[in-house]
Nucleic acid binder design. Sequence first.
DNA 1: GTCTATAACCGGATAGAC
DNA 2: GTCTATCCGGTTATAGAC
Lengths: 228, 228
Amino acid sequence: MAIVLPKTRKGENSRAAILNAALDLFRERGYEATTMRAIADLAGVSLGGSYHYFPSKEHLVLEFYRHTHELHLVAIAPLLAREKDLGSRLRGTVRAVVITCEPFHAVAGSIFSTVANPSSPLNPFGGAARPLREEVVALYAEVVKGSDARIPADIAEMLPLTLWLYQMAILYFWIFDRSPGRLRTLEVIDETTELIVRLLGLANLPVLRSSRKRILGLVRSVAGGSIA
Amino acid sequence: MAIVLPKTRKGENSRAAILNAALDLFRERGYEATTMRAIADLAGVSLGGSYHYFPSKEHLVLEFYRHTHELHLVAIAPLLAREKDLGSRLRGTVRAVVITCEPFHAVAGSIFSTVANPSSPLNPFGGAARPLREEVVALYAEVVKGSDARIPADIAEMLPLTLWLYQMAILYFWIFDRSPGRLRTLEVIDETTELIVRLLGLANLPVLRSSRKRILGLVRSVAGGSIA
DNA sequence: GTCTATAACCGGATAGAC
DNA sequence: GTCTATCCGGTTATAGAC
């Protein structure tokens, strides 16, 4: 059921060829319009052969996730090393997500929907996606931790997961965005990240104490049941 | 591409038979496990024949939407007529959504994912779903308007749409909920509706003025571009 | 044991005769 | 408006090749 790793040099080549072919074709024609037969053809393997490495077409998508995630990490490394302001770190990180994914904008819709299915092995809330999800959550933990913002412990505990969810919402907005250069998404990112930082600053207000506790309890309970 | 309405008595029967067969089988086996062949069989028509009324398997789902929406309206009518407290109205309305949808819980996952695809004609943000979406938004407008809560005009303007979106989030949570009697979802509804009412009450605080403006601007801009 | 190929299966969708 | 026959694409069974 899981993705099989090749044991030989030859196998490695085949696997890479299939993956590259898939990514190219996805980019070029979209997810649905890309047939497994076309992928196999372009990769120079037989149709059945590609199923030796990837148990389903969907699983090729998971690989694409990992691919973009790694590009993303590289893209933001300098920022995270240099910048201390939480707002800037957050804005830069989320902007980098959509910029990294831009070549796949046309495919992203089908992918998102495929993956939104709770019974899909790739559902971001599910078990198979867990390793990658945890990497992304850890990234947001670092975005927060490496900043000079002082976040109360109870908030800091749930913040990375919440930011991961926030990133998913941004991606869904981005999928619909038809504006040139995806400018609207970038604007929304700027607005929302600033808002998040501002609300974090307000969280210590006495009037907000009860709401804060309530929200955190909610996040904790929702996260505990669905994800852990 | 749209759903064809039958012109004859015989056609009406066929259409109804197909729809009933589909809803029964969806309930019984789930969406994916129900084949168009099985639906046609049970309805007593040929496979090709069912495509005369419903252009795709997905379109059978749209019908299911309308069905549950109408059940929902009926279910909450007494509450909306009687109750004046905003929190109670909201809680009752959203609780009724998940209770109405309960018989389809097993199917809901596939349906949600099908519908999440931006290029699907059934996407809730898209054009085809607009009439139904506007009905639901109007319903939430009434939930707010019929209450004794005094909501500032700028908030009242965006609130119904926001509550519609909130309802969708609850439904997505509900899909994952495996707790007996879907108790966790009901708890989350109680928690979140209370939170919403509380935050609405706080919106007039001077410290929150700028965030409030920012949030409303955001909602307006996002809604304007994606939906209107 | 690791890889690859061929042939088939299954189910959504369509064409076109009646 | 209904049928039969067919396409198309994801997936699987399985036999062989290294």
